[in-house]
Write a protein that binds this DNA or RNA. Structure first.
Lengths: 344, 344
DNA sequence: CTGAAAGCGCTAACAC
DNA sequence: GTGTTAGCGCTTTCAG
């Protein structure tokens, strides 16, 4: 059994109160005594029982990562993975443990946010995958517990949001295609009501308009962000459109780009020779396709790192709740043909 | 603030001891009283404070998933993701929370296994990513805490292992190539000292020998399971070998297969027309490549589910520690050419 | 500066 | 059956 505070106290010849004070960096401890206590604690391999600690003090410093919709989403949870990488990188560098919990819209109804935090002794949480109408959004706003949401805008006194400028990023991506001579662009659209879809649509619209192009309903393929739907949608598109009605496919996600490329290939077209395709997200997998996909990297790993950092600072009172807009990066790879260049 | 046991006791007109007994399904409670207590608890939204509970009772039922090497591995942690899917699927179906913790070889030295469990009130753990010489392997063996390791063989009275028959699976995969007329097979090998590499090597060796083929050092490309190394290795191979010295590449992982295909393509070869390639693992990403990769699916998601199930049963005393060998599946896709068929 | 003591929310003996 | 009570390991007053 692990050593308790009592063991340390006995070994150091003081009372548990003093040990507690020494270990919690209280100022009113004789530095000689403190040193002895620290040494003894070290020797005994003593580590405070966090449960007892927070049961007694009524608060903890535990940070949790709360993932919603993990089980429902696509098979390849590249997004969550990258996010976790960033978060645990921070945890690793700062020597803290971060527990991860998986929830979904159903479990949110069964167990309230406060309940979850209470049961697991969570001082502050990083939340990802929350839909705008999820129960936890309201709960977050009402809570006094510091938290950071990623890619979901929730307002509240203790809530930080880490996002990126989706509108601008998608605008840039669209402009990238236009700059390379593409004027007949098909938009492969994500889930209709999703916030991200709408923002990206605005970005595309901005770029189209600025360049004197019009975005017609006819040249939009709707999906729910699923690869198979992109495959089907592109197939359907060419059944009602001539081959020269498009030169490029502007996809709202990398998975949609993968599906689009798959469909184009199966129709006997080459990418990017016959059609150009761009994705959005910056998933690792977009690097393993043929051709490698030109995309906007959301820097999701960095988002994770910064979210953890921010929450850590909030819990330690060195940064207030805030909205953090992280930069994105246009990653130029192999899936776009420059139509302005002379074709030899 | 959440209701405490005292609030429930007062509202139900009994003492906290009775409430505790009622809630913990003790038999010696008047069924009428119990009903009232349960109703009151429900009304008050009372949920027991797990920390206080286990601080007092000295044990919990909490299950944790402990991932090692998550930060060090390849970018695409498809394996961990699938595993998590399986585990959280089980948690979801059974209404339990499973916390995940990320560790690595370094943190294993800093915080002992017992310490980790102690601090986070973990009754039993599922461990993944443990290397055979990691500190936690010994700790596990010495511990009295039930646990399940995935893909790492650790022996001990309370330890279960969930694995697959790597040797047989790789043997089958090799035989698959041989059955399709391949006799000049290059083995793209994983990390030299890794247990999985060794087992797969044995599988390949078995199949080779059985079919009168010899596995020569000359036709093995060594890697550390990294895609880039496969790319480089295949490139190097063709600098010292003639194009007709091989017809197929037998890769120890899907990522290596992806790298191999990438290298072959960049050399101007077609897959599978010029060379066949098989992978191993059954990652989702092997479905998004061109061609889609024929591979052995380790059914990692199912492994996760079964591991959680087993640990759950162990903690509830309905199954003893055991070794579980899960089935694998050869998934035939597009990356292998049948040399026995007449080429038209 | 340090000791003594109350109490966090709960379980588990032990009475009655 | 139910009340009472002693802790679990720790923090936090309050004395001195």
């Amino acid at each position: 059994m692990p050593a308790t505070i009592r063991d340390v106290a006995k070994a150091a010849g003081v009372t548990i109160g003093t040990v507690s004070r020494a270990l919690n960096n209280y100022s009113d401890v004789n530095c000689h005594t403190r040193e002895r206590i620290l040494r003894v604690a070290q020797e005994l391999g003593y580590r405070p029982n966090q449960m007892a600690r927070s049961l007694s003090s009524k608060h903890s410093k535990n940070i949790a990562l709360v993932l919603s919709g993990f089980l429902e989403d696509t098979m390849l949870n590249d997004f969550e993975t990258m996010l976790m990488k960033g978060i645990y990188q921070f945890a690793f560098e700062h020597g803290i443990d971060i527990a991860m919990y998986v929830i979904n819209s159903r479990t949110q109804k069964e167990k309230s946010y406060e309940q979850l935090c209470y049961e697991h002794n969570i001082a502050g949480a990083i939340l990802f995958g929350l839909k705008t109408n999820d129960p936890y959004c309201e709960a977050l706003a009402a809570s006094h517990r510091p938290c950071v949401t990623i890619d979901t805008e929730v307002r509240g006194p203790c809530i930080s949001n880490v996002t990126l400028d989706d509108v601008t990023a998608f605008d840039e991506l669209t402009q990238y295609l236009i700059d390379r001579g593409h004027r007949k662009i098909v938009l492969v659209h994500g889930r209709k009501n999703a916030m991200v879809s709408m923002e990206r649509l605005v970005g595309a619209y901005q770029a189209f308009t600025r360049n004197g192009l019009t975005l017609t309903h006819d040249s939009i393929i709707y999906t729910n962000f699923l690869r198979e739907e992109a495959v089907a949608g592109v197939g359907a598109y060419f059944r009602t459109h001539t081959p020269d009605s498009a030169t490029a496919f502007l996809c709202m996600s990398d998975m949609l780009a993968i599906g689009t490329i798959e469909a184009l290939k199966s129709l006997g077209y080459r990418v990017p020779d016959d059609y150009s395709v761009v994705g959005y997200d910056g998933l690792e997998v977009a690097n393993y396709t043929d051709p490698k996909i030109t995309t906007v990297d959301q820097n999701i790993k960095e988002k994770g790192y910064e979210a953890a950092h921010l929450l850590y600072d909030m819990l330690n009172g060195i940064r207030p709740a805030q909205k953090l807009v992280l930069p994105h990066t246009l990653v130029e790879r192999e899936s776009v043909k420059n139509l302005n260049e002379l074709s030899n």
